[in-house]
Write a protein that binds this DNA or RNA. Sequence first.
DNA 1: CGAGCGGCTTGATGCAGGTCAAGGACACCG
DNA 2: CGGTGTCCTTGACCTGCATCAAGCCGCTCG
Lengths: 250, 250
Amino acid sequence: MIKIKSGAYDGKMQSASSGLNSSRQVAISASLRQSRMFASLSPGDLAAVAEGCSLRSLQKGETLFREGEKSEGFYVMQSGSVSIFRLTPDGREQIICVFRPPESFAEVTLATVESYPANAVALEPSQVIVVNKSRFRDLIRRQPELSLHMLGSMSIHLKHLVQSLQDIKGRQIEHRLADWLLHQAPGGAAGCPVAFELPVTKKVLAGQLGVTSETLSRTLARFRTEGLIIVEGAHVQIVDSPGLRAYAAL
Amino acid sequence: MIKIKSGAYDGKMQSASSGLNSSRQVAISASLRQSRMFASLSPGDLAAVAEGCSLRSLQKGETLFREGEKSEGFYVMQSGSVSIFRLTPDGREQIICVFRPPESFAEVTLATVESYPANAVALEPSQVIVVNKSRFRDLIRRQPELSLHMLGSMSIHLKHLVQSLQDIKGRQIEHRLADWLLHQAPGGAAGCPVAFELPVTKKVLAGQLGVTSETLSRTLARFRTEGLIIVEGAHVQIVDSPGLRAYAAL
DNA sequence: CGAGCGGCTTGATGCAGGTCAAGGACACCG
DNA sequence: CGGTGTCCTTGACCTGCATCAAGCCGCTCG
């Protein structure tokens, strides 16, 4: 259950919507607030957005949308994780990116591109907020500042894609994997040994990095024999972060 | 009236609005009108945008901006062509895309990403319109509809990138090249032989397709021996478009 | 004019990573 | 319990493309 400081919020919500759904609306508002896109919105505007939203629960493996479908809006992650991918002609999935809270995705479909350019399925039990398209467009017209956030969010995705694009061509896995491992480490720059759990299965991770699971497995094995990391199932410990950094730097 | 820092520039702008340079402004307006982003703008708004713009001429090989530089705005192609690329760690360039009129690019830098995420150089003598960032942001606030166009433009770039991403991993050159050739053909669906000139050197084309010029050369040679196309220098004739389509379909 | 250079082609060779196949660890289920 | 599933690992092999190298053409420029 999501806790919310009520009071002023509740009052506004009551007046905004008819009250029956207000607790759900408040919960949605709270989640939206986490997203950087809505972080700086006034409570009133946030409520207005929330009113045009609905919640969707997904089981593991359930698909949220398919490539080519007409879009109903865009999405803000509330819990779990969602994989965005396309199918190669021979039917295998090419993962484009994986989203988790508090990221948002499919903003593209707000504009001229009306249909989803890729597929989305939940990697685990997840909840997403569906932001209604036409409501949101109306709001943008009244609240131009919002569109700058929108642009910001999209440009981050775009930059990320550009990065992936060049990574996949220009750097080999050991570099990309080393990079990824270092970015997972919570402590960041700290030189001390850091440990964490893989947030996804190795198969999915392989997909994210653009290789097969076999190749990922081999590369992890190599890192292990070189004494850079220790791997036990989903548990990873970084032993020699300078060594990893040397790989990642390339 | 919006203030500009440089005194000389301020003077120019003043005289622009008062008529001396108005022909330049009119020319800019006309070019902007070509771009789909500005196509539906009212004449007054268009003039307002044009006023915040300047023109920049580039020689072949001249760089427009470099990765990491702070951005001054975004660009609309007026003539020529500009290549966007990043440098791999070992110093070779990885082309991300090539723009020609009436496309616009570097819109990303309008939002949170303040510095260019890649490099841009002219592939031939070119002219671009520089759209001043802060002025344009002001305009968005007054004219929210504009931001939807902005979002549209960016989402097209984004979709294009997603396509490239999956192409590079999932399809081999012959498929990508076949695809590209068919998209060049002006007549489109017509089954009759179509001919055209390569808009860029084969080396650059290879870069766009994500391979080396040697590989492109070999692939073209194969298509030639298979009787799909005829190539003479920059002149290409599509002989067997169904055959090409069969390749591209994969 | 010849030298040099950039673009293009073609051949020989190497390698990263994909594919196929087999097997182990673990979970769930009738 | 054994059966069937997913996930992961490891080995043997294959292949698309990069790389290196050599040579041809057409150009610009000293």
